[in-house]
């Protein structure tokens, strides 16, 4: 019973902070409302005894939001949300999309024939997750991992302003790359 109450409270918190993302008027606050929503979701997983998944959600989302906030704000030198700005754009279109998705999901939840639970939860769900991922799905995970890495490398290559010719010269014969900021290794 207590668990159910905590779970409902966390669910409500996740939804409310999610809504707040579009209510607050600063980029930083919007980002951290989104993070709060993720944290509530992670905490809900913890309450369900899915420790690894819950903590992983918290860990990954925190770092992700911290990176995102940099990208959202690094173009602006006006900290502390000095310039209030609206967090919603194209309100009518997004409201329509949101409502449609909501209806589809609700209909799905109530009409899908969910399977009954058989057996009992394992003592260490972390191990179960590991075995599920690293056992039958191993090939898939390896492929996904490589694809993600390739996407990141390709994305950076496409986005970067300076290529190797800028760094190493037209004939790529410079000993040290010509970078505005030197790294810590002698290269």
């Amino acid at each position: 019973m207590t668990e159910l109450l905590v779970l409902s409270a966390l669910g409500a918190a996740a939804v409310c902070t999610g809504v707040l993302v579009f209510v607050v008027d600063s980029m930083a606050r919007a980002t951290f409302c989104l993070l709060a929503s993720f944290l509530a979701t992670g905490a809900a997983l913890l309450v369900m005894d899915l420790h690894y998944l819950g903590l992983l959600t918290i860990l990954m989302m925190t770092i992700e939001m911290a990176i995102m906030v940099v990208f959202m704000i690094m173009l602006m030198m006006n900290p502390a949300g000095l310039m209030p700005m609206t967090m919603v754009h194209n309100t009518k279109g997004s409201a329509a999309v949101g409502a449609t998705v909501f209806v589809v999901l609700v209909v799905g939840i109530w009409t899908v024939d969910w399977p009954e639970r058989t057996g009992s939860p394992p003592a260490d769900p972390t191990r179960q997750v590991g075995e599920a991922i690293m056992g039958p799905q191993m090939l898939l995970m390896i492929v996904v991992g490589v694809v993600l890495l390739a996407t990141m490398v390709a994305g950076i290559t496409l986005a970067t302003h300076r290529g190797r010719y800028d760094r190493f010269g037209p004939d790529l014969d410079r000993g040290r790359p010509d970078d505005p900021v030197r790294g810590g290794l002698p290269r």
Binding site: F32, L35, H51, Y52, L55, L56, I58, L59, T62, I63, M65, A66, D124, P125, T126, R127
Partner: peptide, 16 residues
């Protein structure tokens, strides 16, 4: 069942 990740998550929240 994931104390090590707990510590890691607490440290990551420090970023924010």
């Amino acid at each position: 069942s994931a104390d090590l990740v707990w510590f890691n998550a607490a440290e990551a929240l420090l970023w924010v």
